[in-house]
């Protein structure tokens, strides 16, 4: 599949960059005229993945988070959120609704559930001690609808 556009951004694992990452991914997909709902879905999912990288991957410590977004010819958006943090021991458990390793910190344990609800596909690859990659995919239907109207 041919690539329409692509971007990579590395930023420090700091809480203030949660909103920065949302702004960047919005700017990346805005030229496609996504619906407000699609835009919110993508922003929310990216926010969850970036927060996970900061809070769980690096446990609030130093590190770099990479946001790698690719837009394919068929308007499939792929966003990889990559950290080189502690990794996830049990991915299946991490994805279970309400599961959290941070009971004291009041994380709701709903991060992956939110990502799964708002994106078409969520893939998690992780190695303990090496890091985690969360791959989020969504086909932006608004583009198809616009193309259909033009035809």
């Amino acid at each position: 599949m041919r690539i329409k556009n692509e971007m990579r951004l590395d930023f420090p694992a700091a809480g203030k960059n949660e909103s920065f990452a949302r702004l960047v991914i919005s700017a990346f997909i805005l030229p496609l005229n996504p619906t407000l709902e699609e835009l919110s879905d993508v922003k929310t999912a990216v926010s969850e993945a970036v927060t996970n990288a900061i809070v769980h991957g690096y446990e609030g410590g130093e590190g770099t988070v990479r946001l790698h977004a690719t837009l394919f010819e068929d308007d499939l958006l792929r966003v990889d959120v990559i950290d080189a943090g502690r990794g996830i021991e049990n991915i299946e458990m991490a994805r279970t609704p309400f599961f959290t390793t941070c009971a004291d910190d009041e994380r709701s344990g709903m991060g992956f559930t939110v990502m799964e609800s708002f994106m078409d596909a969520v893939q998690v690859t992780s190695k303990v001690g090496r890091g985690t990659t969360v791959r989020l995919e969504k086909r932006l239907r608004a583009c198809e609808e616009q193309a259909a109207r033009r035809a």
Partner: peptide, 9 residues
């Protein structure tokens, strides 16, 4: 804007 942090709150 709100993500799952709002649920925890």
């Amino acid at each position: 804007f709100m993500d799952s942090s709002g649920i925890g709150l």
